[in-house]
């Protein structure tokens, strides 16, 4: 299991800082929830971890994100295998324009798995892990777009698991789901955290309370406070954290 640590990370869009000098270690095999008001840099931070931040070419990143001691922003870093290691679950489920089966095997095939039997094995295993197997096992060839939104999000999770990630980055993964689908996704996180490091960006404080082992609070691009969830929720040390938890700032 890889260990992620962030050192003096600073990000600016067109000269406007979005993250300022962020340093902390993400605990392994736990759910780390990143909380904070909108525009505080949560999503920017998450996008640094798999370097999707590169997509925006007016962005400047300083500092380091170390995975097992290696800086992912180093010039010679292998972005493709980094992204394989960091699974992503986005706000709105983004199913690929292909069948359910092909959605799951898309990643493994990119990374060189070709054998039919192996691919079928991966599909079943990952769909089971995302507890979607029972619902779709009879129609794996159907277009993924025909699934309900909740099912699509679980398919995206299965697709992410299929490339054997080491961490799961989740950007408000329940934001576009109905309460029941959201609950099933949350349930999955509880199961997955035994094997994966989960980084969860959320603006729902209650979700953070339910799921998080570790809490990180961002405010206006700054890392204000981080620590074990219980401790931070019951006894925040910074007044800004307290105000946010009390709902005074949101």
């Amino acid at each position: 299991m890889s260990h992620i640590s962030v050192r003096n990370l600073t990000v600016a869009y067109n000269g406007h800082p979005a993250l300022r000098d962020v340093s902390f270690d993400i605990p392994d095999r736990q759910v780390t929830a990143i909380i904070g008001p909108s525009g505080c840099g949560k999503t920017t931070f998450l996008r640094c971890l798999n370097r999707l931040i590169d997509v925006n070419n007016s962005v400047r990143v300083q500092g380091q994100v170390l995975i097992d001691g290696e800086d992912i922003f180093a010039p010679r870093a292998d972005v493709m295998s980094l992204r394989r290691k960091m699974g992503l679950l986005s706000q709105k489920p983004q199913v690929l324009p292909m069948s359910i089966f092909d959605n799951v095997t898309y990643g493994p095939r990119l990374h060189g798995v070709r054998k039919r039997a192996q691919l079928e094995q991966i599909v079943e295993r990952c769909l089971r892990m995302a507890s979607l197997w029972d619902e779709v096992s009879g129609r794996l060839r159907a277009p993924a777009a025909e699934l309900s939104v909740g099912q699509q999000q679980r398919l995206c999770l299965a697709r992410g698991l299929a490339v054997q990630p080491e961490a799961l980055l989740c950007d408000e993964p329940t934001a576009s789901l109905d309460p029941i689908s959201a609950q099933s996704i949350e349930q999955l996180f509880m199961e997955l955290k035994n094997d994966y490091t989960v980084v969860l960006v959320t603006h729902i404080l209650r979700q953070a309370r339910r799921l998080a082992d570790y809490l990180v609070f961002f405010y206006m691009g700054e890392l204000v406070e981080h620590g074990p969830a219980q401790q931070m929720l019951s006894n925040p040390s910074d007044p800004r954290t307290r105000k946010y938890l009390e709902g005074v700032i949101s």
Partner: peptide, 23 residues
């Protein structure tokens, strides 16, 4: 976002273009 979903799985730009965007 759709392209990002593919990139996040470790696909290159061309692989994403070929298998996701073109389709």
């Amino acid at each position: 976002s759709l392209k990002e979903a593919s990139w996040a799985l470790g696909a290159t730009r061309w692989e994403t273009m070929r298998s996701v965007v073109l389709r």
